[in-house]
Amino acid sequence: MPVVDENAAIRLQDVSFRWPGRSGFGFEVSHLEVARGQTMFLVGPSGSGKSTLLSLICGIVAPDSGRVEIDGEDLGALSAARRDRLRAERIGIVFQMFNLLPYASALDNVLLALAFAPGRRRRLKGREREEALRLMGALGLPSSLVATAPAAELSVGQQQRVAVARALIGDPGIIIADEPTSALDAAAQSAFLDILFDLVGDVGATLLMVSHDERLAGRFDRVASLTEIARTQMAHTGRSSAEAA
């Protein structure tokens, strides 16, 4: 029985998972831990099991065996509904692109993060709108732009910043970013990371960012390679990536 580290925000131990279906993609992680308040960068080329790992951490799927813990809570022991709730309360997610509902305003997109998270809502004490506007202001988005115009009218860079505001609002504690800069050009990438680190640092949130682009790794507390942490396997070939490598 491994010692539970109370300071771990995210912890995976002896996890194995296979997507249902014949061509199910197999995925194994023996150990991964992200300490609370830490910023971690995971390098992973496509096919390295990135989205499977994120699905496990976010509780979208449950592992076939092993433990996935968020703030010390084992997701495997929770029902799907409780996992959804936990994700809503504790994790903010920034996708590669297409983060926003294009027809809704940026403001509504940010407030959507609170729809399933009464705990995050409570923390804001009825000042949800103000906080959303404050965050977007801090991210350099003018309030005239975010309140009414549909999100589809924003530039890609602006949309990514709205996604950061959505991930941060109500202080969920953990931010998961899945290639958040890959749709941006080099200058915008740097500016985006500056602003992300500022805000994450302000609230002391844990940040786990996954990307194939190693050049971004410089400013993170920890850097690891997904291919070293995880073994993937295609069901129909039975060949594991570790053996191939």
Binding site: C58, I60, A80, A81, D84, R85, R87, A88, E89, I93, F95, F98, N99, L100, L101, P102, L112, A113, A115, F116, A117, R166
Partner: peptide
């Protein structure tokens, strides 16, 4: 699909 993935990401249950 985008809409649904976003809703799922912010904690919506499949039933929702």
């Amino acid at each position: 699909r985008r809409e649904m993935a976003i809703l799922r990401a912010v904690g919506a249950r499949p039933w929702t």
